[in-house]
């Protein structure tokens, strides 16, 4: 590369070496906490303390996983979380696609004001909505209820998803619809036959982003859900941790299980990360 032009070969080797060491340190830093979780989850209970803190136990077991899946409420939590996250993702994607389409294809009075309104929702601290939302949902019997969570999460994720979908619509040339409509198609038909097929990757990416966001939400889940049968994974795991904080193997096994869908969806949306992070530009 040009950057290394005019250096001694020794310096160049050193630069490459430093670069690789840097990369290696980032890799270790990123993976170590997750590795440790997996390690404890497969360590037999009796080796946990007797071997002290070692990088890998002398024997490993799936026992904790079996326990978690058969003797705890985690399968229920898992099901609840999947239900909530999938419904939220589907709902958000539908309404955000519609709103994003509007921003992308229409110039209308109040457009920038509406966009600003959507941006504002990304700025104010959601934690301040916890009390009023609780009081609003309680009389509607939407507290302690998965549907209530879906409604709340859908609203929280809609603005970001709208900007994301808008960016996907913006990529599709208007000529495509225009020519379809000149050929006599209505807007709805142009949308269905031309736009939606081209936006499928965008719809998928939005679905993935919202799923991961809903999957990891904790504070509103804690506040709104009380009954064990309605808990999401985040809420269930946290109550489990505070109640049974000695069963390390089971806690870590449960944590690893919660990690699986998140990582799965991450693989799925990886190529859209840049766009996702810049669309709303705020969602961590």
């Amino acid at each position: 590369m040009m950057k290394t032009l005019g250096r001694h070969p020794g310096q160049r080797v050193l630069a490459v070496l430093g670069h690789r060491i840097g990369i290696l340190m980032y890799l270790l830093f990123a993976l170590f906490p997750l590795f440790w979780m997996v390690k404890i989850s497969v360590t037999p209970a009796k080796l946990l303390y007797s071997e002290g803190v070692v990088l890998w136990p002398s024997a490993s077991t799936w026992h904790s996983y079996v326990q978690v899946l058969t003797h705890t409420a985690f399968p229920t939590y898992f099901r609840n979380s999947v239900l909530v996250s999938l419904s939220t993702a589907a709902l958000v994607t539908a309404i955000a696609a519609s709103a994003g389409y509007s921003f992308s294809r229409f110039q209308f009075r109040g457009r920038s004001a509406v966009m600003f309104l959507l941006l504002v929702t990304q700025m104010f601290p959601l934690v301040m909505l916890i009390a009023p939302i609780y009081r609003m949902l309680a009389p509607l019997h939407l507290t302690d209820n998965l549907l209530g969570l879906v409604v709340v999460y859908t609203a929280f994720n809609a603005p970001f998803a709208t900007f994301l979908m808008q960016s996907f619509f913006d990529e599709i040339p208007r000529d495509l619809e225009e020519s379809a409509m000149i050929d006599g198609a209505t807007r709805t038909m142009a949308l269905r036959k031309v736009i939606i097929p081209l936006t499928l990757p965008g719809l998928g990416a939005t679905l993935g982003f919202v799923f991961t966001a809903a999957w990891s939400e904790l504070l509103f889940g804690l506040m709104l859900i009380n009954t064990d049968s309605q808990k999401t994974f985040a809420v269930g795991l946290l109550t489990f941790v505070s109640k049974f904080s000695v069963d390390w193997g089971q806690m870590m096994a449960a944590a690893v299980l919660a990690l699986v869908p998140a990582i799965g969806f991450f693989g799925f949306i990886q190529r859209y990360l840049v766009r996702g992070l810049t669309a709303g530009a705020v969602k961590g």
Binding site: L31, L34, S216, L259, I263, F266
Partner: peptide, 10 residues
Amino acid sequence: FIPWAVPTFL
């Protein structure tokens, strides 16, 4: 980039 995808509670 995996840490970004790890749910915050985890």
